[in-house]
Design a protein around this nucleic acid. Structure first.
Length: 277
DNA sequence: ACGAGAACCTGTTTGC
DNA sequence: TGCAAACAGGTTCTCG
């Protein structure tokens, strides 16, 4: 479900409710999500205080007292539901984990498709953790820019669409924002990644930053089941230029083209073949 | 090594 | 109306 702007919005919503709070009780209702829960998951968390909540790519990382870190990925359908007090019983069929805080609030992790994951690590090992160590640069950071994107694309024959979905190239983009960024940069999703290195990468990097910043400002995009931790809906979906707009006329310019939908490596791509070359 | 496609899972929408 | 196929914001494994 969520891409970088949605995860960032969720982290910003959770941070003030979690940082400084102690996990008084952790209930896990099944053995696994995408991967098994670690041994003694609840016991290793209960009694710990959350010292810091961060986002890395589409991962949420909570640092806890005692040197442990909780790593969470929301997959396609993961969401956090905040209850001021105990949630209603019985839990919903997709409410897999329940964190009760020392202020009495409860955070429920709900994930219909179970593509999400939760695992534990030592804070000291986070940079070398297998889930995190190979991720590309944060697109909103200074290390990501035209030259660095160009270098990452050089020599790659895969379509630029696939290269941007690859979290090694740049971390945090998903299907929606890749489509939107390529539209904004005027680059065809079918173009070989290597041919974007150079001048086109100089357009693409700022397009990616712009789209992501605007989406964060709008609280992310709500299509199906994404909600902020507070339960509010994002509204960036109203600003999509191409995503989900197959057949509509290309907006924002007078090229006269229509938005097309094609499938690339099994996923829908939306683009305007007149404007994007 | 690299890229395409399948697999993981459930719910909703689309099409015959 | 009913059922089956297609589709959904992600990641990872296998196969060629």
């Amino acid at each position: 479900m969520p891409e970088l702007p949605e995860v960032e919005t969720i982290v910003r919503g959770l941070r003030p409710r979690l940082e400084g709070r102690t996990l008084s009780r952790v209930i896990v209702r099944r053995p696994d999500l995408r991967i098994p829960f670690p041994e003694n998951f609840s016991r290793r968390l209960e009694g710990r205080t959350v010292t810091r909540l961060d986002r890395r790519a589409k991962y949420i990382v909570a640092r806890l007292s005692g040197g442990t870190a909780l790593i969470v990925h929301l997959g396609m359908s993961g969401q956090w539901v905040i209850h001021d007090g105990r949630p209603a019983e019985p839990p919903g069929p997709h409410d897999h984990v329940e964190f009760t805080l020392d202020d009495g609030t409860t955070l429920v992790y709900r994930d219909v498709r179970r593509f999400g994951l939760m695992t534990l690590a030592l804070q000291a090992d986070l940079a070398e953790h297998p889930l995190l160590r190979d991720l590309g640069p944060e697109p909103l950071g200074n290390a990501f820019n035209g030259p660095s994107l160009s270098a990452a694309l050089r020599g790659r024959r895969t379509p630029i669409k696939a290269a941007l979905l690859d979290q090694h190239t740049v971390a945090g983009l998903g299907n929606i924002y890749v489509c939107e960024a390529l539209f904004r940069a005027g680059i065809s999703p079918r173009r070989a990644a290597a041919s974007v290195a150079g001048r086109r990468a100089e357009r693409l990097a700022p397009a990616i930053k712009g789209i992501l910043n605007e989406a964060i400002e709008a609280g992310g995009s709500t299509l199906r089941d994404y909600v902020q931790a507070s339960g509010e809906l994002g509204y960036f979906q109203h600003r999509f230029a191409v995503y989900g707009r197959e057949g509509e006329s290309c907006a924002g310019c007078d090229c006269g083209g229509a938005i097309q939908r094609i499938v690339q490596s099994g996923r829908s791509t939306f683009f305007c073949s007149r404007r994007q070359r």
